[in-house]
């Protein structure tokens, strides 16, 4: 099975089922999003632009991460009215962010029929110790991670999709690369490991043994893994795909740039044809100004990725 690039969770039974919505149905939607781009949007007009460009889903927000950084303060779940408005404007799946540990925000999002919830470190933490128990929901969740242990802990909590955290709202890909390399590297180490060593490895990365073993057998995370946090150009998106991600989240990168429609379309094409440099060159031409980037060596830049583990 290793190297097939396929998520197989069906019938493995490692994860308990809750309220008629089986884990495989939750993972199934993420599998349908593979090879696609999920874009942050703040209103119905932007959602329409994203849909027209070929986004496979949109993330409904009040402020994109770059604005959250600039304005500071407490970032919360968006107004459900706004999310509903965006939901009515498009036919593709709509995601929304809830604060880490804030299960009531998640309940509200579930009740308005959102397709996926992002329990996100970009919003201010609601609970510094605990994440939401995602098994209690019928709606699937996506969670951020910086390394394999964090990813498997989130999956044990019920996350049906994983995104590497990167550093949202910076337009700087360096952290995203670090996190993807960390996850992929650990999986490569795990695959070559003797079965007897997996117990200690699981202890070391603080992850449940059964999920570690499943990851070893599959040769990949047992759910779909997207990249996020800092993708600003088609080349960034293709880099994430070549490093082994299943798709890409683009936050501020699209709608903080000079020509959002053209950039959105280019990133979508770059993700599909990620291994074809000719097409990548073609779509990268004439996109106008990219979003302003932040240098992460600057001590004043807050690290969102460090907010949870």
């Amino acid at each position: 099975m290793s190297g097939s690039g396929v998520v197989t969770v069906y019938g493995n039974g490692a994860i308990t089922e809750a309220k008629n919505s089986t884990f495989s149905v939750k993972v199934g939607l993420a599998q349908m999003l593979r090879g696609g781009v999920i874009m942050d949007v703040v209103n119905a007009a932007q959602a329409r632009i994203a849909e027209e460009a070929g986004a496979c889903a949109v993330m409904a927000l009040e402020r994109v991460p770059a604005d959250i950084r600039a304005q500071g303060g407490v970032a919360r779940m968006s107004d459900p009215g706004l999310i509903k408005e965006i939901k009515q404007a498009v036919t593709i799946p709509v995601m929304a962010k809830a604060r880490i540990g804030h299960f009531v925000e998640a309940q509200i999002l579930e009740s308005i029929g959102i397709d996926y919830i992002d329990e996100s470190e970009v919003l201010t933490l609601a609970d510094e110790d605990n994440h939401i128990n995602k098994h209690n929901f019928r709606v699937p969740f996506v969670c951020g991670c910086r390394n394999l242990g964090e990813a498997l802990r989130r999956i044990r909590e019920g996350a049906a999709m994983i995104r590497t955290k990167g550093e949202a709202g910076t337009g700087n890909i360096v952290e995203a690369v670090r996190h993807v390399r960390s996850v992929m590297g650990a999986i490569r180490v795990l695959r070559n490991m003797d079965d007897d060593e997996v117990f200690t490895f699981a202890k070391k990365i603080a992850a449940p043994y059964d999920l570690v073993m499943q990851t070893k057998q599959l040769g990949r995370l047992p759910v779909v893994q997207f990249a996020a946090g800092g993708v600003a150009t088609p080349a960034d998106a293709a880099l994430m795909m070549q490093l082994g991600c299943d798709g890409v989240f683009v936050g501020s990168g699209v709608f903080k740039s000079g020509d959002p429609a053209a950039r959105a379309r280019a990133i979508v094409q770059a993700v599909t044809h990620y291994s074809d440099p000719d097409i990548l060159a073609e779509v990268s031409c004439g996109l106008g100004e990219a979003m302003v980037g932040l240098n992460l060596n600057d001590q004043k830049v807050e690290r969102y990725a460090m907010r949870s583990e």
Binding site: Q31, M32, R34, G35, E51, E52, G54, A57
Partner: peptide, 11 residues
């Protein structure tokens, strides 16, 4: 295959 039909149609 399965996927988002709007996305696939655009591509």
């Amino acid at each position: 295959p399965g996927g988002e039909s709007t996305t696939m149609a655009k591509l």
